[in-house]
Design a protein around this nucleic acid. Sequence first.
DNA 1: ACCTGAACACCGTTCAAGT
DNA 2: ACCTGAACACCGTTCAAGT
Lengths: 206, 206
Amino acid sequence: MSDTETRPLRADALRNRQRLLDAARAAFAEHGTDASLEDVARRAGVGIGTLYRHFPHRDDLVEALVRGGVDGLGTLSEQLAAEDGDRLDALHTWLQALVRHALAFRGLAEQLVTAAGSDNRLGTACHDTEAAGQVLFARAQAAGLVRPDATIEDAIDLATSIAWVVERSGRDDPNHLLTLTLDGLRPPLTPTQPRRGNEGGRHQGR
Amino acid sequence: MSDTETRPLRADALRNRQRLLDAARAAFAEHGTDASLEDVARRAGVGIGTLYRHFPHRDDLVEALVRGGVDGLGTLSEQLAAEDGDRLDALHTWLQALVRHALAFRGLAEQLVTAAGSDNRLGTACHDTEAAGQVLFARAQAAGLVRPDATIEDAIDLATSIAWVVERSGRDDPNHLLTLTLDGLRPPLTPTQPRRGNEGGRHQGR
DNA sequence: ACCTGAACACCGTTCAAGT
DNA sequence: ACCTGAACACCGTTCAAGT
């Protein structure tokens, strides 16, 4: 929480930084988060050293690109907490958004899991995400809608790993696996009143 | 199902093959499945070309090292199907073994998910694993113990992704997440008769 | 203060030459 | 039939030299 990157950049440096971000976004979209950094610099029309000056680690580049999404997850959590619908549905909705977020770039889920708990910018982003989710998680758990031996870390790890397996297996629908995970593999115990929306729900994939 | 590697190897070739496997096992144990292949060849005291002759793709090396485990999952499935205990417990036990299996080497879960559905040796191993699991899965589903819109692919993908996130996050207990996934995040609906063993079950990790 | 790009170390994969 | 290792292409990262 001290002064990170607070000093203003020189005009050309700022321009380069922006070009690098644009180039990285394009490269990540094509090749995933392990795109060649030399290629990123090339696309940005900038020396490789400039890339490293602005983003010493690949993590930092990733973090800059997903910052907006992380903040979005924060405001979404606030919105959902403000409404007073079903607390479990709110958690479910937020976790869906998290999965979507982790699928923004190929390789992102892996970056997120690896960075979680690290003391760097991307680690902070993960921490922020967890804090946002914790609000909804605690609410649902306090209402007895979530088993007491589960934690927000569990939920986030499960959601992230679902994003990962969807990304890697080429499945089409992440929500199917997420619903299974939230409700469990067991069938609804009260057939006349099913647990939650299995709307459509064929699935298949790969 | 045609003749793959059926012809006998020359004595020196067989020896080299074995040395490569031993070296790979050691290298994978140290650095995960993306260990340097040059390093593997070096450890085996063999030229890099010899490694590629025996194992044209990294996958093939991985497959050879996990073959035993895959067969083990097959026989475990047969054993569990022979006993007639709770069919859901049998599935759970088998999925636990699958998670353990996918944690044999760092990076293995990723190799498995990537290879699944591919037309190569490791893809076949995945296919064999799925077939083994399908027996237990179908039994449990037929008994109404597993929701009808879930498939063995879902279960295997979830188990594999749990192995992955445990490996990457440094969690200590894969079974906690697996239990959450099988039972769902919800608390037991009948508090007086809990769903299944939450034995101990603190957890924490990372 | 910032940028450049050569330099270094490392790796995957192929293939001509050997035995 | 099998093995070797040089060769090629590619990449991440650093750092001395520039402006």
